[in-house]
């Protein structure tokens, strides 16, 4: 569900459609459509409708006009949650992107030991967010955790008890979980860059740095857009990781929008306002996806290698 990349989408029928003998196979798509409408499209409309109602999650759903929106929009909790969400998205993007590019470039190399590195390296991808959050919660314990283990007193902080530190921990753990994924994407992309480009550069006397900035980075442009879309749109939905790691705390220092929605809805039983936040999440997500798409110059599957 981090798969929020509009980027990799391209319009469907083309070559083969024309040559087919005119049979309509629409019925084959019906089961998929039924499932997706029932639990994808209807909920999407539903979240908008529910934002104009009052519902405690158990009783009847009562239409109540703009009450929920008024209460959400006048609540200082909303700008705070948006600010926290923005910080998490921006900081984790800033940390993850250069790391993932450098690691991806490195892992794309041919040496055997790099393949070995890669095996261990991708393990975080396999773990659930709940497992990762629980592990770090215990590992960052000020008394029995990492600080004691490494004998580094400055690592023995109350990591999850201080608002600023907790936010930093969230960004770090998010990165720990997702840097391998993004390096994997970059590794694949780097391997597709034709070696002839590097040879030409070498003949021209370009050094390693120069090659990286003049060939590798520009060639990775589409991948950077795709990866950034996934990072940023995905960060809107970091629910489980933060819920288990900090539950939004201390105070509400790490209460991102998704968590705010869950807490209002399922803990405070205010489904109307929670749905309003759901609508905001959907809109922000769509907006960001479109923005990144624009940045990428439309069709991202079109190869950048053409004419190389």
């Amino acid at each position: 569900m981090t798969a929020a990349s509009v980027g990799s989408a391209r319009p469907a029928p083309s070559r083969s459609a024309k040559s087919v003998h005119g049979r309509s196979l629409g019925w084959l798509a019906v089961p998929a459509l039924v499932f997706f409408v029932a639990f994808g499209v209807i909920p999407l409309i539903g979240v908008l409708l529910l934002s104009f109602t009052t519902w405690d999650g158990i009783g009847e759903v009562v239409p109540s006009g703009l009450t929920s929106w008024k209460s959400v929009l006048s609540d200082p909790g909303l700008p705070h949650a948006m600010w926290v969400t923005f910080q998490v998205a921006a900081l984790s993007w800033l940390f993850q992107t250069p790391m993932s590019i450098l690691l991806g470039v490195f892992l794309a190399g041919a040496q055997k030991y790099r393949a070995f590195l890669a095996v261990l390296y991708f393990i975080p991808l396999l773990l659930s967010s709940a497992a990762i959050a629980i592990t770090f919660k215990a590992l960052l314990d000020p008394n029995f955790g990492i600080g004691t283990g490494l004998g580094l007193p400055f690592m023995s902080q109350d990591w999850l008890g201080e608002p600023k530190l907790a936010l930093g921990v969230v960004v770090f753990v998010v990165s720990w979980q997702f840097i391998p994924f993004h390096s994997l994407i970059y590794q694949g992309a780097v391997r597709q860059i034709p070696t002839s480009m590097y040879e030409a550069a070498q003949i021209d006397g370009a050094g390693r740095m120069r090659q990286f900035f003049s060939i590798t980075l520009p060639q990775l442009k589409n991948t950077i857009v795709t990866s950034s879309t996934l990072m940023v749109v995905g960060s809107l939905t970091f629910f489980d990781l933060i819920y288990v790691l900090t539950a939004g705390g201390p105070g509400d220092a790490t209460r991102v929008l998704a968590l705010d929605m869950y807490k209002r809805g399922f803990q405070a039983n205010l489904m109307g306002p929670a749905s309003a936040i759901g609508v905001i999440l959907v809109l922000v997500g769509l907006l960001l996806a479109l923005l990144f798409r624009r940045l990428g110059g439309g069709d991202q599957t079109a190869s950048q290698l053409e004419g190389a």
Partner: peptide
């Protein structure tokens, strides 16, 4: 693909 589907968890629950 473009929509964070978790955001629609409340209607799914309903």
């Amino acid at each position: 693909l473009a929509i964070p589907l978790q955001a629609t968890i409340i209607p799914v629950y309903l």
